[in-house]
Design a protein around this nucleic acid. Structure first.
Length: 481
RNA sequence: GGCCCGUUGGUCAAAUGGCUAAGACACGGCCCUUUCACGGCUGAGAUAAGGGUUCGAUCCCCUUACGGGUCACCA
């Protein structure tokens, strides 16, 4: 049974990079019917941000990444908040001390700082490794603050990563890292290993910024005699400037993106394809739902190279998901916006908002764009008669005036747009393009509309159509004279 | 700086030791359409550089360049 976990620290909102990690962890579990776990790593009390936990829950909920075990939902391996597991770490550290694989260190910050070289880099000099058992006992009894450090052995440490293959690092590159901090909390690295073991995690999936610290994990697993999980390190996500996507660099939060009108489906879809691509029969598709991804995701095709977040492609994907959306769902999404437009003071007309929604669905990248697109149905905007001029349609204000007058006459009798256009053409000798262009302009006052003139005639009432024609004729008459 | 990793069009990316190196976004053009959009067609655009290995390298090896990551009582 595959068990994977997303293990964020509650230090703020979730970025697209965080979501990508969570998604891949989710998919790696779900493709094999496994279990996806959420664990909060809150061992750093300094960096804890109020509300960050809720932001994580909310982001996962809104994007559909349901976790099977974790805070709020529980599970057999809880608690799922690290600070609540505090008691479980020290015994393992002491076990290592007993086996000679870790040791107490009483060095103070000042001494540690003095170890820095000219570049500010420092490596612990194992000062406290030389302490005798009596000295240690004495200091512990005196209540001296201590940390527990892992003793890194000689040699080199290698591991196999699903994405990057074999990776080996000389142990001398690592310092004797701290396992237990002087406040009694475990460090991230240590807590991670202990929790992953106790939670029976089989796949450790995370960003590749952790790749160089993985040998330390390996050493810990070996020292504790625990089975090693599968490591899957994900290529980095970067912004247009080539920097890692992070809160530090002002990356947008997923929640903000949702507020801005990006659909959860589109974000998930897009982010799945950043650093991974489907193979075989699906190789030429790009639009996938989460359940589809669960079936076809294969970590063997995760890329090694970093990828750049491109909001243009996400925007395109958003419009694709809007097009694909069930009619009822789309209407529910967009009708609040239309209702708002309908309530505007000074409104001329109340069109059938469902018809407007249908019209807009294949043309939108964002739900809220429906308002500027169809607002002219509600209120005819003030427009300039320049709009009546169009070279290709061979229209200008004079042609338009003739067209509108002829159409008005026919339409007021026939109340049928199509027939009225035919009659007006015959009566005025104008072409269809000239007629329709003029008509569209008079009815919308817009240079671009989501539909043609005859659609507008159908959607506006006869009275409103005539009213707008009269406004057009009134605007044009003095200009033509 | 040491160590680790990476480098296919502007972006996401496919592919193989061997025909003219897929596709998508964005961009240009054309068609359709009463306009815009949608849709359809089409164009330009890439294997970082240099050495090897090989009959033949985008692919394997080395070097260089560039980019990134990492070297905390942060995660």
């Amino acid at each position: 049974m595959v068990r994977s976990r997303y293990a964020p620290s509650p230090t703020g909102y979730m970025t697209i990079g965080n979501l990508r990690s969570a998604l891949y962890e989710y998919l790696i579990a779900k493709r094999e019917g496994g279990v996806f776990i959420l664990r909060l790593e809150d061992t750093d009390r300094q960096r804890y941000v109020e509300g960050a936990e809720e932001a994580i829950y909310k982001t996962l909920r809104r994007t559909g990444l349901r976790y099977d075990e974790g805070p709020l939902v529980g599970g057999d391996y809880g608690p799922y908040i690290q600070s609540q597991r505090k008691a479980s770490y020290l015994p393992h550290a002491l076990e290592l001390v007993e086996g000679g694989k870790a040791y107490f260190c009483f060095c103070e910050k000042e001494r540690l700082d003095s170890l820095a070289d000219e570049r500010g880099l420092k490596k612990y000099d194992r000062h406290c490794l030389a302490l005798s058992p009596e000295e240690i006992k004495q200091r512990l009894e005196a209540g001296t603050a201590y940390v527990i450090r892992q003793r890194i052995p000689e040699g080199r440490t290698a591991f196999r990563d699903t994405v990057f293959g074999e990776i080996a690092i000389e142990n001398k590159e690592m310092e004797d890292q701290i396992l237990i901090k002087s406040d009694g909390m475990p460090t991230y690295n240590f807590a991670n290993v202990v929790d992953d073991h106790h939670m029976a995690i089989t796949h450790v999936v995370r960003g590749c910024e952790y790749i160089t610290s993985t040998p330390k994990y390996v050493l810990l697993y070996e020292a504790l005699g625990w089975p090693m999980p599968v490591f899957v390190h994900l290529p980095l996500l970067q912004n247009e400037e080539g920097q890692k996507i992070s809160k530090r660099h002002g990356a947008a939060s997923i929640i903000d993106m949702l507020e801005a009108g990006f659909l959860p489906e589109a974000i998930i879809n897009y982010v799945a394809l950043l650093g991974w691509s489907p193979a075989g029969a699906h190789a030429h598709h790009e639009i996938f739902t989460l359940p589809e991804l669960e079936k076809i995701f294969d970590p063997a095709h995760i890329s090694k190279s970093p990828s750049t977040f491109d909001i243009k492609k996400l925007t395109w994907m958003n419009s694709e998901h809007i097009k694909k959306m069930k009619r009822e769902k789309f209407h529910a999404l967009v009708i609040p916006f239309l209702d708002e437009a309908a309530k505007k003071p000074g409104r001329d007309f109340l069109p059938d908002i469902h018809a407007l929604a249908d019209m807009a669905q294949p043309r939108l990248a964002f739900p809220r764009e429906i308002v500027p697109m169809v607002d002219f149905f509600f209120t005819l905007p003030a427009y300039d008669i320049e709009l009546y001029t169009h070279a290709k349609m061979k229209t200008d204000p004079e042609v338009a005036l003739g067209a509108l007058t002829a159409f008005r006459e026919a339409f007021s009798r026939l109340a049928d747009g199509e027939k009225a256009v035919a009659e007006a053409m015959a009566a005025s000798g104008l072409g269809k393009g000239q007629l329709l262009w003029s008509l569209r302009t008079a009815l919308s006052g817009m240079p671009a509309t989501p539909c043609g003139a005859l659609d507008m005639v159908r959607l506006l009432s006869k009275e409103e159509t005539l009213r707008r024609l009269d406004i057009g004729i009134e605007k044009l008459t003095p200009a033509v004279k």
